[in-house]
Design a protein around this nucleic acid. Sequence first.
DNA 1: TTCACTCTAAACACCT
DNA 2: CAGGTGTTTAGAGTGA
Length: 678
Amino acid sequence: MMQESGTETKSNGSAIQNGSSGSNHLLECGSLREGRSNGETPAVDIGAADLAHVQQQQQQALQVARQLLLQQQQQQQQVSGLKSPKRNDKQPALQVPVSVAMMTPQVITPQQMQQILQQQVLSPQQLQVLLQQQQALMLQQQQLQEFYKKQQEQLQLQLLQQQHAGKQPKEQQQVATQQLAFQQQLLQMQQLQQQHLLSLQRQGLLTIQPGQPALPLQPLAQGMIPTELQQLWKEVTSAHTAEETTGNNHSSLDLTTTCVSSSAPSKTSLIMNPHASTNGQLSVHTPKRESLSHEEHPHSHPLYGHGVCKWPGCEAVCEDFQSFLKHLNSEHALDDRSTAQCRVQMQVVQQLELQLAKDKERLQAMMTHLHVKSTEPKAAPQPLNLVSSVTLSKSASEASPQSLPHTPTTPTAPLTPVTQGPSVITTTNMHTVGPIRRRYSDKYNVPISSADIAQNQEFYKNAEVRPPFTYASLIRQAILESPEKQLTLNEIYNWFTRMFAYFRRNAATWKNAVRHNLSLHKCFVRVENVKGAVWTVDEVEFQKRRPQKISGNPSLIKNMQSSHAYCTPLNAALQASMAENSIPLYTTASMGNPTLGNLASAIREELNGAMEHTNSNESDSSPGRSPMQAVHPVHVKEEPLDPEEAEGPLSLVTTANHSPDFDHDRDYEDEPVNEDME
DNA sequence: TTCACTCTAAACACCT
DNA sequence: CAGGTGTTTAGAGTGA
């Protein structure tokens, strides 16, 4: 792992420089270093894994770049009548192996993302995957740019040499001319990219016009041959002749070029503009073939495509645009349901944005870290700027209990140069605070569910986010998860550190809390064993602890059973987030259901009806909750959630989740490390 | 305001 | 003696 990250440093150099914008994100670097300073810190493994992933992606990005260049040249030759594929073979500079298959899984188009969104089955994991893929796309873009630059430099160099040499062998001259053409293409591509960027910006970055293949990247990546692409391109462009003036430029170019140019901006719009989706119905929202349907009705509508109403969960077939409008006005008029769905969609978007922001920061931190590492190899593991947590004394952290947004370091650590909505609380804010002492009730009000953790198992595993569960619940979970339903204290410790990144630091604190809970709660029974003592759970006693819980929200149960229609399309995580009080239901449901999939589906199913309540309940159930919390479910992750409610699902999660990611025996010692790898 | 609950911190005892 | 384990107490925050 470390070796990989080490080697990667070199290969990453260009991308890093491109991406980091020369800014030194001390905090992030410091955090990273802090994490590395401790050799046993699991975050190192995580980081290395991520780095390896990035490395892989970059390699693939290079391949993509080569592939694009190659295809572009082929296209150019076809267009210009130079039908001589042989030339490609003879061009040493462009003779690159193409591995389309390899890049296929790495590339995800906005359309794919949109489709997933529309299906409303996005789990947090999926979101993470998507975001990672988006990161890969960013890297690819950077690599492309870098590659272009290099190619240009190389070409210029060679041209100069050839000019000076005067006499060149025929073949070299031929190559030179080709390279010239190639250079022109490169320039053209860059211009195109800029134009496309501009056009997208003019459009508010929101609506990726159907005619603009933000999409072609996918078919391209899937190995579609240039002619097919051309055909598709014609198909698309013909449908949108008047789409935009710049379209002329596009059409004059080969498809691959357009692919490159369009894909990049589309990514940019998605990533660089977190508000894009907010404004507009999920900008990335243009299903692959939607463009064709748009042809029939000049009034493109984000909620209409493929002759189907794209209102979340609707999918009603509308033959034409007029009928769609009728349908829209009749079925999705301003009522409670629509409002609720709209609200949900807002949260979906915001969660996506937050996730995106997080991953962007992570990427930035990684790149910054690698950059620093490569340029300052001797950099001590000493924290560069650990204002935040590392150096944060306990008293300090205690002094600011609870404050959710915890933004002490934010102003000084604008990790990503990318614009972010002011309302977006970055992970930096979340995790640089050190041990956040949260006060919360596990009875209500926490808009995050065990379902969420179930689907965020990886999240909690890798992100230094405090799990929204009480110690008692976690301990119980750990014990129940064990084969014999009993664990030694040390095994419980290990479970904590293995399952939650949060518990990989401040060990003294939480271990003490664990011991305290074990002793305090009757539900934990100490059993003398041959090799010492083990702890078991008295389930009856545990359930006894807070009997008022479920009964406290009978309406929830009713609602959950009654209304299914509302949130069918909801993102699972959001559903979970919005399920809030209904979580206890899952406790029983999840008990015997060890698989994550079952859990997720069961939860989703049950939660489908929760939204109505949630929405109607949101105002009254969140008197103590800040608007931010209500609006940004993600934030909730930072806040501990209802402990007991979480129990059921959590058990499922962990059970399904037996991942050996972390060394079981690894000893996560006390270390005020602020691993901001999250 | 009170109560119940949780978290954190700390002191202490016991054991290995 | 050091460190781990287990118990207990105290203080503080939160929501009902």
